[in-house]
Design a protein around this nucleic acid. Structure first.
Lengths: 163, 163
DNA sequence: CCTACCGATCGGTAGG
DNA sequence: CCTACCGATCGGTAGG
């Protein structure tokens, strides 16, 4: 709280005139992260074309959220476990909804025959999100790989792995 | 340190008769994690057969290390950033060596024609380890999926994504 | 929004 | 290996 205050040019204790607790801030930030991801998923689900195009849109959207909102995303991905049990449940259910948007795309692709008919859709969703969420850990915006290259390459890996 | 002491039936302060600092313990645990992973990679590299078999052995070995040594692994994967700069460099170089063992398998597969000739081997290694390391976050030993199923499914996803 | 605190916790030490 | 601490830090509060 003292760090946050100093970024605003005031003392840590002064923040308590504006917020009730540190937990409240954590809830707020994680809620914003969830909202960003879900908006991206809803957009991907509305993409024209087949399951492969929707999966590509999902990947691109997820990467854009990670790269354009890295602070909220890091908090959303790594700090949700510090929420109170009740708030953690809410966060888990928001993540579940997001994952189920991805699973809808994968199921669609299985039914339309572009993905492996024996694909375990639940595991496929976990695999895709494992690859995507790890980007926050290793990708550097000032590194050798452009955002377009990143999206194209990861879309390729993820799509091929579902076939 | 007080928690560690209490697991040993003594006080936190008493641990300092046996270790110099908390950092020393962290270095020790992370070193053990690195050793376990590298032994597994060396074993995979020595596997008979082609790149696909060696990749399957690498995956199986990585999963075994994660599932059989989850405490060291969690520390190795998530706490290395708290090392002093010097020790962190050492840890990073141990991870680099491990990743380069994986890249050797991928390059081998590209040259022998079982993987995509245009595969970006560095990115391929990152993708595979993203999927594998995430297992620690979601897989439950008492869940519906056996360890064999897990290894088979993830080997499939990873292998297909390299083609 | 600051002053002046509080109780809890943490890594660690001196001395036995 | 314990007793008895130390200084630093943390989330938070009372009162202005």
């Amino acid at each position: 709280m003292r760090d946050l205050g100093s970024e605003l040019g005031l003392l840590g204790s002064s923040l308590y005139s504006h917020v009730e607790s540190k937990q409240e801030l954590l809830i707020e930030v994680i809620g914003r992260g969830a909202l960003l991801f879900q908006a991206s998923a809803d957009n991907a689900l509305a993409t024209d074309g087949g399951a492969e195009q929707r999966l590509a849109a999902f990947v691109k959207g997820h990467l854009d959220v990670i790269l354009d909102h890295s602070d909220e995303v890091r908090t959303f991905l790594n700090e949700a476990r510090f929420l109170d049990p009740e708030d953690r449940k809410r966060a888990v259910s928001l993540r579940d909804r997001y994952e189920s948007s991805l699973r809808a795309i994968l199921s669609d692709g299985v039914e339309s025959g572009v993905f492996n008919p024996d694909l375990d859709v639940r595991l496929g969703g976990i695999v895709a999100l494992s690859v995507l969420n790890a980007v926050e850990r290793w990708y550097r915006v000032d590194g050798p790989m452009s955002r377009q290259d990143l999206a194209r390459e990861l879309t390729g890996h993820i799509t091929r792995s579902m076939k």
